[in-house]
């Protein structure tokens, strides 16, 4: 009973906040609706018993990715009328993407009802460690059967990260603001101050 109420609550919230994400006038509101959608999707994951995935969804998407989205969108100065102007021009493209997505959904539904794919059994008896929590099960799969795929995914992410740093890094030679932290820490009051005793009206050289 509570499960059913919770499912319909989360599902309705995901769909509604997804709709609000694309219809909101203010981009910041849009990002906030997106966050609500992530959050409710995590709720759905908990309901199907995938609590590890749910927590990762919240930590990675809500806690890090969406914060950066919000961070960027907040600082943009967006002209809404200019944004609206491209609507007619981009409408055919958007419509075709929407049709492709709908077709894929439909194909997926048909394939599912056809029952050709055997992905596992809902009672969890196909898990590598039956009766253990799903963190242990995911670990047991990732670090044995899918070890090389997992590591290559990690390497791709590492390369992407280094690439982003290399692309945005600029060598700026004579720019103020370079600090020698250990020098700052080593500094003592008697070497930091001195009594200059300047001539009246002469001032001091800094």
């Amino acid at each position: 009973m509570i499960h059913i109420i919770a499912f319909y609550l989360f599902a309705a919230m995901v769909v509604a906040s997804g709709a609000f994400t694309i219809t909101a006038r203010n981009p910041v509101h849009s990002v906030l609706w997106l966050i609500l959608a992530f959050f409710n999707a995590a709720g759905l994951m908990v309901l199907v018993g995938a609590e590890f995935i749910a927590m990762l969804l919240v930590i990675v998407y809500v806690g890090a990715v969406a914060v950066l989205f919000l961070f960027v969108v907040m600082m943009l100065d967006i002209d809404f009328s200019e944004l609206r102007a491209g609507f007619v021009k981009n409408f055919p493209l958007g419509l075709s993407i929407a049709i492709i997505l709908a077709a894929e959904l439909f194909i997926g539904l048909v394939a599912y009802s056809g029952g050709k794919l055997e992905l596992g059994t809902p009672d969890g008896s196909a898990a590598p460690l039956v009766g253990e929590s799903n963190i242990e099960n995911i670990g047991a799969l990732l670090y044995t059967r899918y070890l090389f795929l997992f590591e290559s995914a990690g390497i791709i992410l590492l390369v992407a990260m280094i690439g982003a740093i290399v692309l945005t890094h600029r060598e700026r030679g004579n720019v103020r603001g370079h600090q020698n932290i250990s020098k700052q820490v080593r500094r003592r009051p008697d070497e930091a101050t001195y009594n200059a005793r300047p001539e009246i009206g002469a001032g001091v050289d800094l």
């Binding site: 906030l32 966050i35 609590e51 590890f52 749910a54 927590m55 990762l56 919240v58 930590i59 809500v62 806690g63 890090a64 914060v67 919000l70 961070f71 907040m74 929590s133 963190i135």
Partner: peptide, 22 residues
Amino acid sequence: DINVGLLYVLAISSLGVYGVVI
């Protein structure tokens, strides 16, 4: 008493930033 307890704490504490940002 959930078995992702510590991850839950991490997830929730990562939400705390939204109050400040918003």
